[in-house]
């Protein structure tokens, strides 16, 4: 997720074929606690099942700081492959020991310095426990504070801005088999969403066209998020993990303009206008 679109090179610029720029990217930290391969696979599978879209081709940093005794090269390679199997791309290691350095460079993994506070137990160190955000039933109000990777040290660019919620706007039909996820913000679709398609957002979802697929708002647990659609024909609607399927939806307001909201543990579907 680039921080900003790169500007067009101006004519006065040098004839270099590239330019180096600093950037801040949100990354997920996978902090290993146990290296038992079977348990790791089982736990990963369970976590992936909860939020499949969140993990699709997601770059992650693997933290080995909690692991004792130190990891062997073969184990590292196994964990990297296991992550890949679940759609996670390990791009860097944190807190690796000296004898893993060769293995890491052979696997094209970058090495990041260990965190300043060793073996932090609480999440108040600027590394929130992302698990809490993923389990749908928890009401987490604080914003995730992403781990940063700095490509360039430049004091002026390192000013941390609070991430503004980004709205994703889709103008072409979302077809069967397609999945669109608006991470960290709202999703607006100005076209039909076909049966068999899936649209997800951390915030609200608006569909200006027939909404026939699966529509999931507040997938990271934001219970105040809502769904607005012009014609409700969905296979499933969900807010923060609370859902209704097609069979129930057909009972009320079918093919009408509605908004879907959550109070306590009940999904409300109300006509618009």
């Amino acid at each position: 997720m680039p921080a900003s679109p790169s500007p067009k090179p101006d004519s006065s610029a040098s004839s270099l074929s590239f330019r180096l720029k600093g950037g801040l990217f949100p990354l997920t930290l996978l902090e290993l606690i146990d290296t038992d391969p079977l348990k790791l696979r089982k736990d990963l599978a369970q976590k992936m099942a909860e939020a499949p879209a969140f993990f699709q081709q997601a770059p992650i940093v693997l933290s080995l700081e909690q692991i004792q005794p130190p990891l062997q090269a073969a184990e590292l390679s196994f964990i990297r492959d296991l992550c890949r199997e679940f759609g996670l791309i390990v791009i860097a290691l944190r807190g690796s020991n000296d004898h893993l350095q060769d293995a890491a460079s052979a696997m094209n993994l970058a090495l990041l310095p260990a965190s300043k506070v060793k073996k932090s137990e609480s999440q108040s160190e600027g590394e929130p426990d992302i698990e809490g955000l993923l389990s749908p039933q928890t009401n987490q109000s604080e914003q995730p504070c992403p781990e940063d990777v700095q490509a360039q040290k430049d004091e002026e660019t390192v000013v941390r801005m609070p991430a503004a919620p980004e709205t994703k706007i889709v103008t072409t039909p979302v077809r069967s088999g397609q999945q669109i996820y608006a991470a960290g913000g709202d999703l607006v679709v100005l076209a039909p969403v076909s049966a068999g398609a899936e649209i997800l957002a951390d915030g609200n979802i608006h569909v200006y066209g027939p909404a026939r697929g699966r529509i999931l708002a507040g997938v990271r647990g934001n219970r105040s998020s809502r769904i607005f659609c012009q014609a409700l024909e969905a296979e499933l609607v969900s807010i923060a993990g609370y859902f209704k399927v097609n069979e129930d939806l057909r009972q009320h307001h079918w093919k009408q303009s509605v908004q879907v909201s959550l109070t306590d543990e009940t999904l409300n579907i109300d006509c618009l206008g």
């Binding site: 088999g177 049966a195 068999g196």
Partner: peptide, 23 residues
């Protein structure tokens, strides 16, 4: 019709034109 919808989705996301940002 459902399968056609699926193939339309693949066309607009996986084809060379889609990769180049064209439709």
């Amino acid at each position: 019709v459902r399968d056609s919808d699926r193939i339309l989705g693949i066309l607009q996301s996986k084809s060379r034109r889609a990769e180049r940002g064209e439709s």
